[in-house]
């Protein structure tokens, strides 16, 4: 069946089977392979995307449920010129090893910091606890997210 939604600022229409998950649609129909698949049952968080601004698991949503929605994936949070402050912070803190969880971590952290730029370490840990990383042990990821908070605060509140 035909399906239309907005991905990373572009309106797209694709033909999908009703049973296709949103993550398979993004990866295999739209070739947005930055969103990863780690468990297909909503535990690992590798497939996290932003759906109408909220961080959600694209493996637990059928593609057809996204009709008319606005989707942002890791590709939509990236540009060619420079790393975003959040991406640069991940690199600076060595919050990346194999890179497989990274897109899900960054989309989750982006959603958190966009809503709560003053969140504390406990809050960051609580929110990221839905994203499994098998390499880093999380310490550096939490540090990276905390260090990127200032970039999400409104300009007037910055020193």
């Amino acid at each position: 069946m035909p399906l239309s939604f907005e991905v990373n600022g572009k309106q797209v229409t694709v033909e999908v089977e009703p049973r296709m998950t949103l993550v398979d649609c993004l990866r295999h129909k739209l070739r947005l392979t930055g969103t990863h698949v780690g468990c297909e049952h909503g535990v690992c968080g590798a497939c996290t995307i932003l759906l109408d601004g909220e961080a959600v698991r694209a493996c637990l949503i059928l593609a057809v449920q996204a009709e008319g929605c606005k989707i942002v994936t890791i590709e939509g949070l990236s540009n060619d010129e420079a790393l975003t402050p959040l991406q640069a912070s991940f690199r600076r803190h060595h919050a990346v090893q194999c890179g497989f969880c990274t897109p899900g971590m960054i989309t989750t952290a982006h959603a958190l910091l966009s809503e709560e730029p003053d969140c504390d370490a406990d809050r960051v840990r609580e929110v990221l606890s839905g994203n499994i990383c098998r390499c880093t042990g999380y310490i550096s990821i939490v540090e990276a997210v905390l260090d990127a908070r200032s970039a999400y605060r409104p300009p007037e509140s910055q020193p």
Binding site: G34, T35, E75, V96
Partner: peptide, 21 residues
């Protein structure tokens, strides 16, 4: 030294085997 590979990983531009088509 900050890692070279991170430049693609943090942008979701790593290429894992399931990304091949």
């Amino acid at each position: 030294v900050e890692r070279r590979e991170d430049l693609r990983f943090v942008r979701g531009r790593g290429q894992y085997v399931d990304d091949l088509n």
